[in-house]
């Protein structure tokens, strides 16, 4: 039966092509997002170069007066500041000396500056009308209740997550949510999957993130599509990113927290998008659909109505048919 063979071939070909990615995958947002960066130059660029010429490089040079020659040394890794990352960070417009002591202009730097006191976020952002919309004070309130705040004695502070030289706002102005998720998750992984940094703050054994999340189905998919803080923080309605890190035993482990119509993701990851639109093309939680798909959270209103109607019509049809069959049978028996 040669015709049937072609028929079967086509039946299988379409879904296989679909799944294996032969059909064109075009996302205009992805295409446009790379073209929109504009050139920006700091007014302190030249001044900052005095610092970057050593701290922006893997090595630095100094003149040894005793041997009368230039000596090259490796810069300690933790003291290297990446210029490119700095100039796209939130603090890119600052001069180094806006935050660092003027004594750093002396070279070699005075030893006592090693224990220089750093600014905290609220020193600049707190109780300032310009920043009122970001609720920094509330963020601080959340932070002091979080498990991270318990490590302050060991040296934990805002900068551990929000590196002053590289941190940039991501979720609020994201054009690529997956990049944002990766960026935000890397902030956590910076310590939680890097034992060298982790042990600076705790005596705990090394954590294996993959093993710890063994219970999570489709682990890679979850890690790529949600941030750690979706499950590890307490939801807060008034600030965009929750800062109350919960103890491990209080982390979300119930699938339906996200996989349900009133999905937690709408109050966390998609909070910003969700404020703009609750539905999209008849889908519940349509904000999620722009970037992802969450079983149980995304249901289509129209498909729901159509399916429920067809289901009840089927049942009604069967009941009516059964009724007339029984009636016909009883008529036959009587006659």
């Amino acid at each position: 039966m040669p015709e049937n063979k072609h028929y079967f071939f086509l039946i299988f070909l379409v879904p296989v092509l679909f799944l294996s990615g032969y059909l064109p995958a075009v996302s205009q947002e992805d295409q446009n997002s790379n073209d929109q960066e504009t050139e920006w130059v700091s007014e302190f660029y030249e001044e900052n170069e005095q610092c970057f010429k050593c701290h922006g490089e893997a090595k630095y040079s100094l003149y040894d007066e005793f041997s009368e020659r230039e000596v090259h040394k490796l810069m300690c890794e933790s003291r290297v500041i990446n210029r490119d990352k700095y100039y796209i960070s939130n603090h890119k417009s600052f001069s180094c000396l806006d935050c660092h002591d003027g004594g750093y202009q002396d070279f070699p730097h005075p030893v006592e500056l090693r224990t220089e006191e750093h600014y905290a976020c609220l020193d600049c952002h707190g109780y300032d009308e310009n920043y009122a919309q970001y609720h920094f004070e509330e963020i601080e309130e959340e932070y002091v209740q979080s498990i991270h705040a318990e490590l302050e004695e060991e040296g934990f502070n805002c900068w551990k997550c929000h590196n002053p030289h590289t941190y940039h706002i991501s979720i609020r102005n994201t054009t690529n949510l997956h990049e944002t998720i990766a960026y935000d998750n890397n902030i956590c992984l910076d310590c939680h999957s890097n034992f060298n940094r982790f042990q600076l703050l705790t005596e705990r054994d090394e954590i294996n993130i993959i093993e710890r999340h063994d219970w999570l189905p489709n682990q890679a998919l979850h890690f790529g599509n949600v941030r750690c803080i979706e499950c590890h923080t307490q939801v807060n309605d008034s600030i965009l990113v929750a800062h109350l890190l919960l103890p491990i035993e209080q982390a979300v482990q119930r699938c339906v927290e996200c996989h349900s119509r009133d999905s937690r993701l709408l109050t966390t990851l998609y909070k910003f998008e969700a404020k703009k639109q609750r539905t999209r093309a008849g889908f519940w939680n349509g904000a999620v659909l722009k970037e992802s798909y969450v079983i149980g959270a995304n249901r289509n209103l129209y498909l729901n109505i159509i399916s429920i109607t067809i289901f009840f019509l089927t049942i009604a049809g069967i009941l009516a048919h059964l009724f007339f069959r029984m009636k016909a049978k009883s008529n036959q028996t009587n006659s």
Binding site: F12, P15, A25, V26, E29, N298
Partner: peptide, 24 residues
């Protein structure tokens, strides 16, 4: 076929015409 696509989301095309392949 679509069930296997959902079981192994890595093999499912991520976006089709700007829409998540998983949705379709």
């Amino acid at each position: 076929i679509t069930g296997w696509g959902l079981l192994l989301p890595d093999i499912t095309i991520s976006r089709v015409f700007g829409v998540s392949g998983l949705i379709l």
